[in-house]
Design a protein around this nucleic acid. Structure first.
Length: 944
RNA sequence: AGGACCAUAGCUCAGGUGGUUAGAGCGCUACCUUGACAUGGUAGAGGUCGCCAGUUCGAAUCUGGCUGGUCCUACCA
């Protein structure tokens, strides 16, 4: 074995072996356990969030697989409509080609080609993480079977009246030229202006001042609204104003939507370009005038509609000087024109919420279009019930509030997108625009009895990506067929995800699953029984990782390592602003002067698990993974030591030969059981931080620091009995073998590598650790007496070491130890553990002093009643021993004072439970005794 | 505007149902290359648990308020 752990040498080798052997597939069995991977973008690449998410899921999956469950981890990728189409469009743009130049079919071919080219990237990376997903069942949201499920759901919902087509205002992205859902709009506060514009009142001299943040929409104004009880304007209601620039006459209406305090108290109403105005317009039956085209430019000819009949829409010529102008250019010019006309009252600086597309960053335009919607009220109800009554549980529970708040205030979901990449909507139109919905054109014709002469045109739009994602738990298992897989693995066991997609994905999965899947008794099937919601991975400062901040870490770079220069290159490539690139380069050089070391997958995964506490932010500090890489090395070397001492030796596998277990052997076996219990409990609570901490402490602080050291006096003592040596070897190897299994879900590679060599020595056979049983706590092996004895042993050794350390006694120098006072158990323990003590505390002798005997001048340590004395002659100087004692005494005095105060308080003594009072009394007595001894000792030394 | 969450050592975080000498890792100090490991060992230093009240014999822990921070939702032109 290498002297240090080299992850690169083993990881891909084991992964390929596991995959080839088919170990990731479900193995049958009574209990099914299943997890659906949140499908990553097929053309995407792994980020820290994926790394974190996968580490948790694989941990759960391997844990359950080792427990013998029929375990499925379903893998697959998402077509990610907008994101993917955007990437390909950008590639084309470099060559000066637009998707319209190519046409729909050719463009889709390009995307499929891009998917074929880059689609393997993400799955390769998932393999590098060690994720034990069943690749034989890999799915893609646009596979035929999944597309079939999408069409089925669409048609059924339409037939039930839960999908409808309607014309209304939508969030329109003028850059991507598509509608998006409310969720995809980010409202951020930005600095803007409030323009106060004067509208002349018709038939009177005065003017009404309206305040607006969007002057360009004046072209589409169809009213001015005031508050019905506003004395300033009451008399004007029913009159008209003449809209500047267009010259149109529009009414003054009264509506209590208006806030009298804000601006001038008059609001211009533009029903076709503002969600609020739309509602006001509806109430007052105002016309809607659309003045913008799909790109956010002013139309040459406006469209005028009414709420009572969209069909009566007609065109109206707009002002020529604005035709074709971008909305923001038009804004400037319109303001200028108002100024020229003397109709600009004033401009105030104003902060406002600006809606932007989450992908494009473009300012979203409320725009009047025909779109498809899902009516969500009816779907939401059972989905709320399921969480309320606990059929679905969120971990941590507080996310249920977030879920409820959103679900109880749902707007209909706009599902159509004016994109080309995605599931095309299964709706067809005849030449009159009448719509027919069906699974395909043939079905539509037969369903609606349309003859071959009727020409049908399929809807051009595709569905929101989240529509197909919402079906993920069951579409991947073969729905709408009632497959064996569905019966076995649905509902799935747990969903592991970040809180950022609870609305996008989690809520919609619950709604869809419960609507379409039923248990044999007819009750709805939830998609998963538990939602484990974890935090989002951020940088060490708590900042979101983003390309523009230049703080992105690639999990693969943490696994393989990366030199500084390539890292700088990677972080600054394709920067829009060169200045930003410079800053990022500098920042990167400061943070990673040596680049990033190759930490390996196990260290990375363990780091993720250790960070998985209940918080919302997961700050990723490189120091953490550094520490866990060292932990891997510790494991490696512990194994090296064990193998070195066991290979080719008698490890007690022959049952005919007698075996004696030492105290240390019994203790470590006992602690192993307790650790197994802790880990199991923590995993069941989704506390991977606590599980990993328990493992870390057991392996490093107990197995390595103490047990391996305690094994040395036995193995190196030529006079030790063969039974004892056999017992220690047997314990060394079997405990190692057991905790390797315990650790395997967290660190799959290093555990497999070592296990392959350790298992035969421990008498365990099998082709792989990943199919071995997961260790469980054997309560009968929990040995509290052994635990207590070892705690005592540690205290004695620590006492001597403390004297040695504080007194600056050279580590090589052996000490003579004298013992005084102490009870029978101290005598027994001392007698039984002489060999351990001598070696670990580096003693040359241990002797008892009679209680009354004159002790030599010595440094002292106390272990309960037992007094340890290390003679000072030639070793220890007076002043430092006095200082050391002083420190101890001070500590005890403080504690004594605290306890005395407490016990002197009659209300404590009277009212606290008797056992608590007794405990405090015992404590005080022990402290006082110890204090007395130390004071005597201090006096003794002072007199020298 | 409404709601959620957070505040513990220099940094990152643990601390079911109130009683611990308040813990860990990293960092820091001193010493040590002893036959698994310097990606190591040994011994240390470091905290009035954000602030103020309250409940209680007793509060890091429970309640209320305040301050500071993060986030989500919402139609202020």
């Amino acid at each position: 074995m290498e002297k240090t752990f080299q992850p690169a040498n083993i990881e891909t080798r084991w992964y390929e072996y596991w995959e080839q052997q088919g170990y990731f597939r479900p193995r049958g069995g009574e209990h099914a356990y299943s997890i659906m991977i949140p499908p990553p973008n097929v053309t995407g690449s792994l980020h820290m969030g994926h790394g974190f998410n996968n580490a948790i899921m694989d941990c759960l999956i391997r844990y359950h697989r080792m427990q013998g469950d029929n375990t499925l981890w379903q893998v697959g990728t998402d077509h990610a409509g907008i994101a993917t189409q955007m990437v390909v469009e950008r590639q084309l743009a470099v060559a000066g080609v637009s998707r319209h130049d190519l046409g729909r079919e050719a463009f889709l071919e390009k995307i499929w080609a891009w998917k074929a080219e880059s689609g393997g990237n993400i799955t390769r990376q998932i393999r590098r993480l060690g994720s034990s997903v069943d690749w034989s069942r890999e799915r893609f949201t646009m596979d035929e079977s999944l597309s079939n499920a999408v069409r089925e759901v669409f048609v059924r919902l339409y037939d039930e009246g839960l999908i409808y087509r309607g014309k209304r205002l939508v969030n329109w992205d003028p850059v991507f030229n598509t509608a998006i859902s409310d969720l995809e709009v980010l409202n951020e506060e930005e600095q803007g202006s409030l323009w106060h514009l004067r509208y002349p009142i018709e038939g009177e001299d005065g003017q009404l001042v309206v305040a607006t943040t969007r002057p360009e929409t004046v072209l589409g104004d169809t009213a001015v609204a005031v508050h019905p009880e506003d004395e300033r304007y009451r008399h004007l209601v029913g009159k008209q104003v003449r809209l500047p620039i267009t010259g149109r006459l529009i009414p003054i209406v009264a509506d209590d939507y208006v806030d009298r305090e804000f601006g001038s108290g008059c609001v211009k109403i533009t029903p076709a370009h503002d969600f609020n105005d739309y509602e006001v317009g509806k109430r007052h039956n105002l016309p809607l005038i659309n003045v913008l085209d799909r790109n956010g430019c002013i139309l040459g000819e406006f469209t005028v509609l009414t709420f009572t009949g969209y069909a009566t829409a007609h065109g109206e010529k707009g002002p020529e000087q604005y035709a074709g102008q971008d909305r923001f250019d038009a804004r400037k010019q319109i303001v200028a024109e108002f100024e020229q006309l003397g109709l600009l009252e004033k401009i105030e600086p104003h902060t406002l919420k600006v809606p932007r597309g989450d992908r494009s960053g473009a300012v979203i335009e409320p725009w009047l279009t025909d779109q498809w919607y899902v009516k969500v009220d009816e779907l939401a109800k059972p989905a709320i019930d399921a969480v309320e009554d606990g059929r679905i549980q969120f971990v941590p529970k507080q996310y249920e509030n977030m879920y409820f708040a959103w679900m109880r205030n749902l707007q209909d979901w706009c599902i159509s997108r004016q994109l080309w990449w995605g599931h095309r909507i299964p709706a067809w139109y005849d030449s009159h625009g009448k719509v027919y919905v069906g699974r395909d054109e043939a079905e539509v014709r037969s369903r609606y009895k349309l003859d071959a002469d009727t020409s049908l045109q399929q809807d051009d739009d595709v569905l929101d990506t989240w529509f197909s994602s919402a079906l993920w738990t069951f579409s991947t298992l073969g729905w709408p067929e009632d497959t064996k897989d569905l019966q076995t693995f649905h509902p799935t066991s747990v969903l592991v995800t970040g809180f950022d997609i609870i609305f996008f994905w989690v809520a919609r999965m619950i709604m869809m699953s419960m609507h379409f899947l039923k248990h044999p008794d007819g009750s709805p099937q939830v998609p998963f029984r538990t939602v484990y919601v974890h935090g989002l991975v951020r940088d060490s400062q708590g900042q979101k990782m983003s390309k523009s901040k230049g703080n992105v870490l690639d999990p693969i770079d943490l696994i393989d390592g990366i030199e500084l220069e390539p890292l700088v290159q990677k972080r600054t490539a394709g920067m829009m602003q060169p200045q930003l690139g410079k800053k990022i380069a500098q920042q990167t050089r400061d943070e990673f002067p040596e680049g990033i070391a190759a930490y390996g997958t196990d260290a990375l995964r363990f780091t993720f698990c250790s960070l998985a506490s209940t918080g919302r932010d997961i700050k990723f500090d490189i120091g953490r993974i550094d520490g866990y890489r060292n932990f891997c090395n510790k494991i490696w070397n512990a194994a090296r030591y064990v193998l070195m001492n066991c290979e080719g030796q008698d490890c007690g596998s022959d049952p005919a030969l007698p075996v004696t277990l030492s105290l240390a052997d019994r203790w470590i076996v006992s602690r192993l059981q307790q650790t197994a219990r802790e880990v199991e409990h923590a995993i069941n609570q989704y506390r991977f931080d606590l599980a990993s901490q328990a493992l870390y402490e057991f392996i490093w602080n107990e197995y390595c620091d103490w047990y391996l050291e305690l094994s040395k006096p036995v193995l190196w003592d030529e006079s030790a009995s063969p039974e004892l040596q056999r017992g220690t070897r047997r314990t060394l190897i079997t405990v190692l073998e057991a905790w390797l299994r315990l650790l395997h879900p967290f660190m799959p590679f290093i555990t497999e590598e070592i296990w392959q060599r350790a298992a035969p020595l421990a008498g365990v056979e099998g082709p792989t650790i990943m199919l071995q049983p997961y260790p469980r706590c054997d309560e009968s092996a929990v040995d509290t007496a052994a635990n207590a004895d070892i705690e005592w042993l540690k205290s004695v050794i620590l006492g001597v070491r403390n004297i040695r350390g504080e007194m600056n006694v050279p580590p090589g120098r052996s000490l003579a130890l004298l013992c005084r006072h102490g009870g029978d158990s101290d005598r027994r323990r001392l007698r039984e553990n002489t060999a351990f003590l001598t070696k670990l505390a580096r003693l040359e002798s241990i002797e008892w002093l009679l209680p009354e005997a004159e002790a030599p001048v010595a440094a002292t340590a106390l272990v309960g009643e037992l007094e340890l004395l290390v003679p000072m002659a030639g070793l220890i100087d007076k002043d430092s021993e006095l200082a050391r004692l002083g420190k101890e005494i001070e500590k005890l005095e403080k504690e004594q004072a605290r306890l005395q105060g407490k016990l002197g308080n009659s209300s404590f003594v009277d009212r606290a439970p008797a056992e608590v009072v007794a405990r405090e009394r015992d404590k005080l007595a022990a402290q006082q005794q110890a204090l007395e001894k130390l004071r005597r000792q201090e006096e003794h030394i002072r007199r020298l």
